[in-house]
């Protein structure tokens, strides 16, 4: 894949097929876009209590469960009070019933 190597060693944000958001430092990836993340956190979004982070450690995420990989801009990330951001989680990917 000609496209993920620029993100190695960077802080990235993964949007998963089920709508979950996982952030971590991109350690490595392979042909199937399986990804290894260090210093991982899951960011849970909620309409009631705002976004909360929970630490996960090192994760290997299977490529076929990933929807999107974004590079995190550290300045914006740090300037944002995520606990005050009250929105629903992202919807899951749906392939449609019929």
């Amino acid at each position: 894949m000609a496209t993920l190597h620029t993100l190695v060693d960077k802080r990235v944000l993964l949007v998963m097929q089920d709508g979950r958001v996982i952030m971590g430092n991109l350690v490595g990836w392979d042909q199937r876009s399986n990804i290894v993340l260090a210093d991982c956190v899951e960011r849970r979004f909620s309409q009631e209590s705002g976004a909360t982070d929970s630490a996960l450690g090192v994760y290997m995420v299977k490529g076929d469960q990933i929807c999107l990989v974004g590079e995190v801009d550290a300045a914006i990330e740090e300037a944002t009070s995520w606990s005050e951001i009250k929105v629903d989680p992202l919807p899951a990917v749906r392939y449609g019933d019929a």
């Binding site: 944000l13 097929q17 979004f45 990933i66 990989v69 974004g70 914006i76 990330e77 944002t80 929105v87």
Partner: peptide
């Protein structure tokens, strides 16, 4: 406004299958 989840993301890689 409804999708601030990726507010700190400026560039991204999107999987073809989604």
């Amino acid at each position: 406004e409804q999708h601030p989840h990726m507010m700190a993301v400026k560039n991204c890689f999107i999987r073809g299958s989604v």
